[in-house]
Design a protein around this nucleic acid. Structure first.
Lengths: 108, 108
DNA sequence: ATTATTTATCGTAATATTGCTATATTAAAA
DNA sequence: TTTTAATATAGCAATATTACGATAAATAAT
């Protein structure tokens, strides 16, 4: 059907899945890495960094924003994008916890 | 088009995106968490844990396996699934690195 | 040998995603 | 005010995903 049964899972599971899904495209990973590289909020030059048309990039930015991974603030004519640290902290903690739990396991 | 231009991005970007994509569904997060909870390889009871039909679960398991997130070994009649630690270490390191970089930034 | 159990695969319907062109919107610049 | 620049949105085609019922495949149990 193509429709996900989100109501069958916990809020936490849905949140992690939503953020992971948003990162589940190389263009969006590239956007995040570019935002990290320039080490600041950047206004506009994301399109010229990617081998994709402007509307496509705009769409990817929208998805990252919807998932809470980036923030965008209007700055006159342009929009200033930067990473939303909170989301990445949640992800980092999630995977750190998994590794910690795995260390205590003794199978496989 | 629905087709991702993976050749435009680096191998690392594609790898992270591929793993994130596989985790981008609450059912697959639930599978991972169940594998963690039972603290061992488990043979078969994943289907009864999820509110989804057996072929659907089988499909999700396949995707997790293709992304390298879980391993499955045949054990007679059943199949024994467990988490592949390597993938999760890559993810943990990736997000840890992002948080480290963010700590050095002073914007937003 | 037959039956039951476990998992995978096929086929299919509904929906979502990706990417583009064309166009709208909005603010800055001339 | 007209033009330029930066983003967003609409609409569309191609493809992917999600989910299921039906069925296959393979081993275990009887």
């Amino acid at each position: 059907m193509g429709v996900t049964k989100t109501d069958y899972f916990t809020g936490n599971q849905n949140q992690i899945a939503m953020m992971a899904k948003a990162l589940g495209h190389p263009a969006r990973i590239a956007i995040i890495e570019h935002l990290l590289k320039v080490n600041a909020c950047i206004c506009g030059d994301i399109v010229s960094e990617l081998p994709l048309a402007q509307p496509t990039v705009s769409q990817h930015l929208k998805e990252l924003k919807n998932a809470g991974l980036i923030k965008g603030s209007i700055e006159g004519n342009t929009i200033c994008y930067c990473i939303d640290e909170r989301a990445f902290k949640i992800l980092k903690n999630y995977f750190t916890k998994i590794i910690t739990k795995l260390a205590k396991q003794n199978c496989c």
